[in-house]
Design a protein around this nucleic acid. Structure first.
Lengths: 407, 407
DNA sequence: CGAGGATTCTTCAGTTGCTAAACAAAGAAA
DNA sequence: TTTCTTTGTTTAGCAACTGAAGAATCCTCG
């Protein structure tokens, strides 16, 4: 260990690989400049990556007066990852390549209340079918990412799935997965600080600080849905009052719409009368379609929700000093066009550190399948670019020390 | 460089030093367990630290069947740091030792609107007096930490002060400094995720995530004062409505008190009638004293502020998944006993991840001088335990690449 | 009391991952 | 063609770590 330039990653190999991914196309000299490593080091590391098939030389840059730079690029089809999203009512499977691009995708009805072992067998079969559909060899698949709204409830499930599929399984929550997906597929800069505001059935946020995912000690960071936006607001299931989710979440929007007879009829809401598997998601979609068709009451409901969400987003941006906010998740996939301008305006107007930098707000290009793609991206990140786990610093440092006699 | 155990710090030396500091008393074997390094490495690193005078052997542990462990401890008086807090009206100087303990402290009236060069000369003189008062040699002083509410306005000032005092100067904001001070003096665990909620003239928070200070890309993270707690609330100077600071900050409390004739008289408020240098701080203190004397109206005002602050604190804890929240800053030093139970109750009741872990809320034992002590702690941290700056990952990676010809 | 075992701490050779610097290769300019 | 610039590779050397052996210290038990 020596020299001034040090690296945040576990290994230089991972650092260089991540740079190649983030840059898209980059030369060895570019890597030297970006890493602070010397040419010699880059040379050997790149040779190793080429030997493994992860990186390929793809052409030349124009000469700047001497030898032309050889351009490097990720070999997108060298490895694959499976992403699985467990929704209330559906299970979505995607197979992505190294670049995070979807090469196969299937979606099946949720498990309902089947026995766990039956669900595992079924999922293993469907993952197998997904892989076979594009004929990828099993040993080129890095692993399986499994995301859900409450991943901490699926610990055992993950282990069983690991045995059933023979693939390493990593768990995460939908919002964090979506954030990593955005980060991996290059929508935001390599070291940027951003959040993926996730609108599904609830409201959540995945947080990436300076290029590193932040999950929090309980794995529950980014819980913006229970930020208070009205101290005297309605009671929320979390025990508090005036939570963002209770006032502006898709559930709240749907409840308000159902209370409106005319709107219920015009939008064709199912909830309350039928036993649809995903009443909230289905009705939220119906309301969004009605708004797009020009239904003023539907639009008003969504805009009200957007105004609340905007102040929640501002709080999030203020606390984390965000540079970018990406709107993603199934509900933004449907209604993002209503929310985007409202959130953008709020952050342009009232982000507290706007004298230092602005907050760029954008809609994810793949908001609907973001969780599943993100699940796959987590696998790519954890297998290819393992961050330093860092020094183990037990909270009670003196725990293993015998009693002390001072001299 | 080899082996599995890697370290988050710039050097193993810094990692070990930080562990010794965090543990208080620890043996070489304890360091081996905590770091994952081998005994040989720890042996050489510790020898180096002892040679530098930073660490000392202080006794023995009881034998566990073999040779007794030699206990190590930070040599608290090996180095010192100066902390300076620029308030609206006062300049507070502290000199601390390596443990963050204050060995000298002076406080002088603020600079008012004197010329910058005069202020610099004066501060350099006062820093000199501080150091001379305890007779510490100049070369044992690591540097000077300068904190204020808006440090980004003092960039040039810091450089000038560096020249005038001959000490390295680091700048930071009051809330972050307070958080680092808490971290350094060992009130919270070494890897804990916590925030220092800072109540001065405004409301801020210093954020430490997993033992590492988080400042944000604009250096403005933790701006909880402009979290929205009421979408239809009063307008705030930041351009938004219903900000925590506008509803519950010391300024708001004082404004409400001044509007109450009887309370103004009972508490002896100065604002409005005199031109005190710190009308808000002075009047907030007067209100707190009145509340402590049993004035129901004063107490009601503070409790109303506390309820708002509690929901703001809950939002902060939810977003960051906090383990600990420390209340600090001059205003909490005076009124902390009113706020503490309200915040504690709110987080016990409605922290969203309370099934995973609770949030411990406590009052800083040195809330009043927290910024100045924190300023010194920043110096200690930046000089003794420099964290890895990490890989330089320019946002536009391809910026320096010439145009590409694909083969 | 002294041998033997346990534990702590040190020493040292060997490995790894980097740097610095020399060198080779490829193109531009004259 | 010659010379210069830039890119990329090779090599020796260095620093930080590991692993293993050994020294030091302390306890236990015959």
């Amino acid at each position: 260990m020596s020299g001034p330039a040090r690296v945040t990653h576990a290994s230089t190999r991972a650092a260089v690989l991540d740079l190649v991914r983030a840059a898209g196309v980059i030369s060895r000299v570019g890597l030297v400049n970006a890493t602070g490593l010397t040419g010699g080091t880059i040379s050997t590391v790149v040779r190793g990556l080429i030997d493994e098939g992860l990186v390929a030389e793809t052409g030349h840059a124009e000469s700047t007066g001497g030898k032309r730079r050889v351009m490097l690029q990720l070999n997108h089809f060298a490895r694959y990852a499976v992403g699985v999203h467990l929704d209330e009512a559906r299970i979505t499977y995607v197979l992505t390549n190294l670049g995070g691009a979807v090469v196969a995708r299937i979606s099946r009805a949720g498990s309902g209340d089947s026995e766990v072992s039956a669900v595992i067998t079924r999922m293993a079969r469907e993952v197998g079918a997904l892989i076979d559909s594009v004929g990828v060899e099993r040993d080129r698949i890095l692993g399986l990412g499994l995301v859900s709204a409450r991943p901490w409830e699926h610990g055992d499930f993950g282990q069983m799935l690991e045995r059933a599929t023979g693939l390493p399984v990593v768990l995460d929550n939908d919002a964090t997965a979506a954030a990593i997906g955005e980060h991996w597929s290059g929508g935001v800069g390599a070291t940027s600080t951003f959040a993926a505001l996730y609108l599904g059935a609830g409201i959540g946020a995945g947080v990436v600080l300076g290029g590193t995912t932040y999950r929090g000690p309980g794995g529950r960071a980014g819980e913006i849905g229970h930020a208070c936006v009205d101290v005297d607001g309605p009671e929320c299931r979390c025990g508090a009052r005036g939570c963002l989710e209770a006032l502006a979440g898709p559930g709240a929007v749907v409840a308000q719409a159902r209370a409106d007879r005319a709107l219920s009829r015009a939008a064709g809401l199912v909830g309350g009368r039928t036993r649809a598997a995903t009443p909230v998601a289905a009705d939220f979609a119906a309301i969004s379609r009605a708004a797009r068709r020009g239904n003023a009451r539907a639009l008003a409901l969504l805009e009200r929700s957007a105004r609340y969400l905007a102040v929640g987003a501002r709080t999030l941006a203020n606390v984390l000093d965000l540079e970018v906010l990406v709107l993603t998740g199934p509900s933004f996939a449907i209604a993002g066009s209503v929310y985007l301008p409202v959130l953008r305006a709020e952050l342009d107007r009232a982000f507290i550190a706007r004298d230092a930098h602005s907050v760029s707000v954008r809609l994810s290009p793949s908001a609907a399948s973001a969780p599943a793609i993100g699940a796959a991206a987590i696998v790519l990140q954890s297998e290819l670019v393992p961050r330093q786990t860092g020094l183990r610093l037990p909270d009670d440092l003196a725990a293993d020390e015998p009693p002390i006699f001072v001299r």
